[in-house]
Amino acid sequence: MGAMIKLVNLHKSFGKQKVLDGLNLDIEEEKTTVIIGRSGGGKSVLLKHIIGLLRPEQGQILIDGTDITKLNDRALNEIRKKFGMLFQEAALFDSMNVGENVAFPLREHTTMKEKEIRETVADRLRSVGLTGVEEKMPSELSGGMRKRVGLARAIAMRPRIVLFDEPTTGLDPIMTEAINRLIIETQKNLNLTCIVISHDIRSIFDIGHRIAMLYEGKIIENGTPDELQGSQNPVTRQFLAGSIEGPIRIM
C-alpha cells in the first residue's frame, strides 16, 4: 500500500502567525484519513495546500510523485482533475441551479452531449440520495442537502481523491450520521482516497481508516482509530476527551 499523497516539511505562515511548522504526513491510497485538531489550528490551510489553493513557503507536496508546489497553473489544473472537494458550506454556485452545479465540471472538461450530461448528473445525485432536485436553486436547500449536492458535484468527474472540509459542522446529529454514512459508502463504492477534516470526535472513529492529529503546525500522531484511542500522548488524549485540563492551552 503506497502513499498517494506525501507532504514533506511544509512551512506556512500568515504574517507573524506560523500555521504549518515543518509538517510531514503520508496519505494512503484508497483509505480515508481524518485530520483532527483545534478550530483555527490550520486544518483548512493544510487542505488548501493539498489542492494547490495555497502554496507553502517551504516543503513539498507530492501527488502521485509529482511535486505540485513547483507547477505552473496549467499543470496544476491537470493534477486538480484527480481531485474533488466538498467545501464547508458546500460552496455551490448560487447563480446556478442544482443540475447546473453538478454538471459544471462535466461541461468544463468533457465533450459530453447534453443528454449524457443530464443522465450523469441524475446518476451522481442518485448516488448521494437525491432525485428530482435538478431545478432547485441552492438557496432553497437545507444545509444537509447542500452538502449532498456539493458531494455529487465533487464526484461528478469520478476523481480518485476527495477532500472534505468539516463535512458535518453545523448539522444536527441525525444529518451528521447520514453524511458520515454517505462518506463511508462513497469511499467504498468508488475506491476513493479521502481526506476529511473534522473536530467532531464521534464521527472520526466511524469514517477514518487513519487518523492524524494536527497540533501547533505539525502532525503529532498518525495511526488507526484504535491506536489513537490507546494513545499515550497527552495532547491527543486531552483532545479526544474534550477536557479543559492538559497541555492544550485554551486561550
Partner: peptide
C-alpha cells in the same frame, strides 16, 4: 460573496480559471 463563501475556490478546485 463568492469569495467569502468559497465559490471562487470551488472554481479553482474544479480546474476552472
Amino acid at each position: 460573496t463568492m469569495r467569502v463563501t468559497e465559490q471562487i475556490d470551488a472554481l479553482s478546485v474544479m480546474a476552472a480559471n
